[in-house]
């Protein structure tokens, strides 16, 4: 079995992760820019972070045969600081040309504040202007329903191409509206605040494979990259074929991320 881990924060993880992921069939990871657990004060700190995930992390992953890609952006939580966000955004286009940068993400909303919405809109406009793929974080817990609706409203207003937008962290109460609008929907296996492997398997059975991504978002919190394999096992134990597993855990990420030609891993079709 081959896996692509489409949302993974290697900067917060030990090298053991890469070794064990390689042993467990992971061939590539994509690392979005995110909140590091504290609010940064200086734009340059972000820029060094982008250098770390676009230059250094690929070398750590490559030691275990894993391809490493990344996304650059001001994350939703720190976008509350509008001046800082704009200073960072001014440098983003310089990163778009780097060989492993796939697009702008994760952007979006955290607490659905006016400042977050301002920076979300400006980063979306930048993505559209620069023809970048987009990864959108949706808020946690009680803020998710409203945040998802605000996100869909903004994307509709900006006439974003749904095929190039991935809205992440959907749950049972938000997945339908995201898929109905034509976007890619991500299910994040982060059981305490997002989705469990069993619930994700339910959603795959209810909604099918099209436009669905599964990821672990493993980071500095209580999380694990191997929730992906747990979900695959659950799905397999419900009677789904090896090809179906490949479609979900390898081919769909390859299809979405492969819209950027830098991501050159292609879907796999098993010989029948």
């Amino acid at each position: 079995m081959y896996y692509i881990q489409p949302h993974y924060h290697g900067i917060s993880r030990t090298t053991d992760d890469y070794e064990r992921m390689a042993q467990a069939g992971v061939v590539a990871v994509a690392e979005p820019s995110f909140w590091a657990g504290f609010d940064r004060h200086h734009p340059e700190t972000f820029l060094d972070y982008f250098r770390q995930i676009s230059e250094f992390e690929p070398t750590r992953a490559a030691a275990y045969g894993i391809r490493h890609f990344c996304w650059v952006a001001v994350n939703p939580k720190e976008s509350e600081n509008v001046a800082l966000s704009r200073a960072v955004m001014a440098a983003l286009p310089g990163f778009f040309a780097k060989p492993t940068v796939l697009g702008i993400g994760e952007i979006g909303l955290n607490k659905n504040t006016p400042h977050e919405l301002t920076i979300f809109r400006e980063q979306m406009e930048m993505a559209i202007q620069h023809r970048q793929l987009v990864l959108i974080h949706t808020p946690h817990l009680g803020d998710k329903r409203k945040g998802t609706q605000l996100t869909l409203d903004l994307l509709r207003e900006l006439r974003a191409d749904p095929e190039r937008v991935w809205i992440d962290h959907v749950e049972e109460h938000t997945i339908q509206s995201v898929l109905d609008a034509g976007y890619w929907a991500g299910m994040t296996l982060y059981p305490q605040t997002k989705m469990s492997p069993c619930r994700a398997a339910d959603m795959l059975e209810l909604y099918g494979h099209r436009h669905l991504l599964v990821n672990s978002s493993a980071d500095w919190g209580a999380s694990s990259p191997f929730t992906l394999q747990q979900c695959a096992m659950e799905y397999q134990q419900r009677g789904h074929s090896q090809q179906e597993l490949l479609e979900v855990f390898h081919n769909n990420p390859a299809r979405f991320l492969g819209q950027n030609p830098k991501f050159d891993i292609r879907p796999i079709r098993l010989a029948s």
Binding site: L141, E172, P191, Q192, T193, S196, C198, R199, D202
Partner: peptide, 17 residues
């Protein structure tokens, strides 16, 4: 609270299933 929320959702999902 978050642990309970998670367990509650798992129970709900199991009954839905």
């Amino acid at each position: 609270y978050l642990d309970c929320r998670c367990m509650l959702l798992e129970l709900a999902a199991t009954l839905d299933r």
